[in-house]
Design a protein around this nucleic acid. Structure first.
Lengths: 229, 229
DNA sequence: GCAAAAGTGTTCCCGTTACACCCATGT
DNA sequence: ACATGGGTGTAACGGGAACACTTTTGC
C-alpha cells in the first residue's frame, strides 16, 4: 500500500472480521474503501502493523479506532499469504475475529483515511468483498462456529443483561440451525455460569422475560471442564 | 537474519513443529542452530519465506528439505509476532504443525546452512529452545490435542498398516491419558473408517495383532459427520 | 379476549463408561 | 510353562433429543 512495496522483503497487515448481533441478525462490520486498490469496494477493516506493536495490540487498535470500544473480545485465527492476494505485492495478512455488543449502533467513526464509511452488514447478505476477504470471512465464521461450542463467547455479542431467548438466538444464528427451547435452557442453566437477576425485560408488548448475567467468576472455577454444545 | 533487517518494513518466517511417533514416544524434530542468534541452541526448523511461494508451499519445502518426504500432513495454526521475539528485529513467524510417519529414522538431512543437525526429541524431555519456540511448541501440542478429537490425524503418525494398539498409543500420547482398550476399539471400529487386513503383525514375540488400514474413501463419505473423542 | 412470547417435565434412546478373563504366539 | 500383549461382551448410567401446553403481559 506504498510505492516500492516490492522492494520490501515482505509486508504484513491485520484484517478483522467484527461480528455483532442486533437482536435479529448476525452482522459484520465492513468499510468502504477510499483508496486503490479496490477503491469503492467493501472490505474487512484492517491495517498495516506498526513496528513496535504486538499483533494483538495492533488488532486491538483497529477495533478501538473503528468502534470507540475497548477490551473487545478477539482472537487471531489464521494467516493469509498467497502471493498475488494483493495486487501491489506480497502482503501477508493476519486475520482476527472480534465479537462486540451492538448497542446504539452509535459511534462508528472510521478515522482512517482509506475508508469512506463503516457499515454493519448481515452475514447472510454480504456485498462482494475486496482482495480475498470473502475467504477470510468464511474461515472466520467457521472458526467461531467451532468456538461457540466450547467457549462462552456468545455473551460477548449480548448486552450485559440478556434473556435466555436472546442467548438462544445467538447460538442459532452462529450454528445456523434451530434449537429446542426447553433443551437449550436446561443445558445452558446446567452449566451454572448464568446468574438469574431479579429483573425483567422492559418495553416489550408481551410477557417480560427474566434477565440473566454471565457469571465470569463461576465460569473461571469450572476451568478444565469443557462446555459442549 | 540479515544485515539491515530493521530497515525492512517487516520480515516473516515459518516455523514447524514436526511430530513423529516411533512406537513408544511422541517426538518432535529439532535442529541445532549453527548461526547467531542462538547459535548452538535447539530450535524448531524454520525458514524465511521467499517472495513467490505461498505459505503452505514454503512450509512444505521446509519439511521436504529436512526429511526427504513429500505430501506431509501439516496445518498452519498461529502467528507469533511479539516485537522483541527476535533479537535482530521484527520477525513475525507463522507456525505450522506437521505429522509424519517415523519409519527407519533414516534420512534426516538438514541441507540448510544454519543447522548442524536435526534430531528427534521426546516431547516429554525437550531441551531449552531458542527464541519463543517453547511457546510455539506448547500451542502446537494444544492444537493437535483438540484436532485429534475430531479429525483423523492420528493415522498420519502411523505406518500405512498398523494395529489397533498402536493407534491407541497415539491417542494416549497426544491426549495425555490412558484409554480403555475395549472401549477404544469398539468406538474406533464403529466409525467405519478402518479396513481390517488379512494380515498380521510380524516379528513380535507374542500373539501377532491384526493389521488395519485407514480407509480414506469411507472417511470422505462421512463428510459432515464429526468424529468425536 | 387476543396475540406473542415466556416458561416448564418427561420419556426414550443411544453413546460412554466401567470392568476381567481367556487366547495365541514366541521363547 | 510362562510371559506378553491380543482380543472380546455386558450392564449401569447419563446426557441428548423429541415433544405441547399453560402463563403472563400489553394492547
Amino acid at each position: 500500500m506504498k510505492e516500492g512495496l516490492a522492494q520490501f522483503n515482505s509486508v504484513f497487515s491485520i484484517d478483522c472480521v467484527i461480528f455483532g448481533f442486533d437482536g435479529g441478525e448476525l452482522k459484520i462490520l465492513l468499510i468502504e474503501r477510499n483508496e486503490e486498490p479496490f477503491k469503492d469496494w467493501w472490505a474487512l477493516p484492517g491495517n498495516l502493523v506498526s513496528e513496535d506493536q504486538s499483533l494483538d495490540q495492533s488488532a486491538s487498535s483497529i477495533l478501538t479506532s473503528l468502534t470507540g470500544l475497548r477490551d473487545i473480545y478477539m482472537e487471531q485465527y489464521y494467516a493469509f499469504g498467497d502471493p498475488g492476494r494483493h495486487p501491489q505485492g506480497r502482503v501477508v495478512t493476519l486475520a482476527y475475529y472480534a465479537l462486540i455488543r451492538l448497542g446504539g449502533e452509535k459511534d462508528l467513526h472510521p478515522i482512517t483515511t482509506y475508508a469512506k464509511r463503516a457499515v454493519w452488514w448481515s452475514v447472510n447478505d454480504l456485498p462482494k468483498l475486496a482482495f480475498d476477504h470473502k475467504k477470510i470471512f468464511d474461515k472466520g465464521l467457521e472458526k467461531i462456529k467451532r468456538r461457540i461450542k466450547h467457549q462462552p463467547i456468545a455473551f460477548e455479542l449480548l448486552p450485559e443483561k440478556f434473556t435466555l431467548t436472546q442467548l438462544q438466538h445467538v447460538y442459532e444464528l452462529i450454528l445456523g440451525k434451530k434449537l429446542d427451547k426447553r433443551n437449550f435452557r436446561k443445558k445452558m442453566l446446567s452449566f451454572g455460569v448464568l446468574r438469574e437477576l431479579n429483573e425483567k425485560q422492559k418495553g416489550v408488548s408481551y410477557r417480560a422475560a427474566t434477565l440473566y448475567k454471565f457469571d465470569r467468576r463461576k465460569y473461571a472455577k469450572l476451568f478444565g471442564k469443557e462446555i459442549s454444545f
